[in-house]
Amino acid sequence: MKKKKNNFSRRRFIGTSVGFAAATAVRGSSLFVGPSILESQNKPNSLIKGVQIGVITYSFRSMPDQSAEATLKYVVDCGINAIELMGDPAENYAGKPENPVNPRDYYALRRSKRAGETLSAAQEKEFAEMEDKMAAHSQEVAQWRSTVPMDKFVELRKMYNDAGVTIYAFKPRAFGMNNTDAEIDWGLRAAKALGASHVTLEHPGDDAHTQKLGSMGEKHGIYIAYHGHEQQTPTFWDTALEQSNYNSLNLDLGHYVAAGNANPLEIISSKHDRIMSMHTKDRQTPEHGKGNVLWGTGDTPITQALQLIRDNNYKFPVTIELEYDIPEGSNAIEEVKKCLQYCEKSLS
């Protein structure tokens, strides 16, 4: 399929985010939001020298309250005005059936297994029971998604927008190969109701599925941005990009470096018109251990990437993803603030 010209990214991002600039230029104005948890004197502004710095709300996974209202307060407290929203805060706000499994416990065990760590017999049993409960819950959620109206997602969008925060991407667990077409359709409709220009998901590694997602995304006018970890290469997304102009990149620059790819800035330059958003973290190269470290201490060229985006007027947002270990005595909000300060210094 023939690719569009270089204004593709600018048009698609701005076209689905009407009012974005207005929402990002009001640092000094007053803020009023109904719930007391959201009270603040100023609206945030993380548009720096033309580069939109955002955050994925996954960064706040360690915080005790995971509600939509609390998540919004975390974002505002960081001084950030644009986000990639994980599915749970939005879906729970809309009344999704309660998960019988603590997601943090489940994903902690899953990460350990993926990393090749040996689990105890009790942990293996607990993980298996969690997976059974999660599977049953997934079926219940699929049924709920098939009937839930969009009213609460529109309401959530207004709450966030009134606080000065725009949702540019939505990441529910609704676009996998095990999800029904009805769930995928729901996810795209919900993204549109939230004001997002794109949804993000792990690249499925299946050409038929990316073909289907691209077609369904085009139907709704929502872009499908595929995320990758250490399987990312310069050609990782090529088949999906050729399949549909609605298939795109959710590049992860830190994982790209940890995968051992040479010249990580080149993929930004060569594919900037197909990048919808870029996850940003500081990871080391394989030679240095692939660690996920404090910003400025690893091998990821964050400063150079930000300056490349600024100098070439690329319009996709840069998404802070907090994945390094939070130092003792700190918390996710304080660490995201540090990442934002790093961006500000890099772009000054």
Rank of each mutant, 00 (worst) to 15 (best):
Y223L: 06
Y324S: 13
F20L: 13
Y246S: 03
Y93G: 04
G221A: 10
I48G: 08
I37Y: 08
G54Y: 04
Q123F: 01
E328Q: 02
A21Y: 14
Q139G: 15
W237M: 10
G28Q: 12
A191N: 01
M63V: 02
N263A: 15
S277W: 12
S46H: 04
P301Y: 15
F170G: 08
P64C: 01
T280H: 07
L188S: 00
N261F: 13
P149H: 06
E218C: 10
F153D: 06
A182K: 04
M86F: 10
R114L: 12
V257G: 04
S215N: 05
I309Q: 03
S277A: 15
M276R: 06
G95H: 03
E124R: 05
I53S: 07
E98F: 12
D206E: 02
L322W: 00
M276A: 05
D238G: 12
A108G: 14
G260D: 14
T24H: 15
I184N: 02
P44L: 00
F170Q: 04
M278N: 03
A108S: 09
V154Q: 06
Y223Q: 09
R10W: 10
G164W: 02
S138D: 12
M1L: 13
A305G: 03
L241W: 08
G116C: 08
M63W: 01
S215E: 09
A108M: 11
I80C: 01
A193M: 02
L119M: 08
D311S: 07
F32D: 04
D273T: 02
R189G: 11
W144E: 03
T16N: 15
L340V: 00
T319C: 05
P103C: 01
W295M: 11
Y93W: 03
M159S: 06
A122C: 06
V18H: 13
H198K: 15
R310E: 02
R145M: 09
Q232V: 08
Q139S: 12
F8T: 03
N92C: 04
K281L: 04
I309L: 04
T239I: 11
H279P: 03
S346D: 07
G205N: 09
E39Y: 14
K271D: 14
R61N: 05
K43A: 05
S277M: 12
M63P: 00
T233R: 10
N331K: 06
A23T: 07
H137P: 13
G217R: 02
A332E: 02
D207T: 08
G221W: 11
L47Y: 11
G254L: 05
H272I: 08
A22K: 10
E155H: 01
Q307A: 13
G217A: 06
Q139C: 14
A121Q: 15
L294H: 09
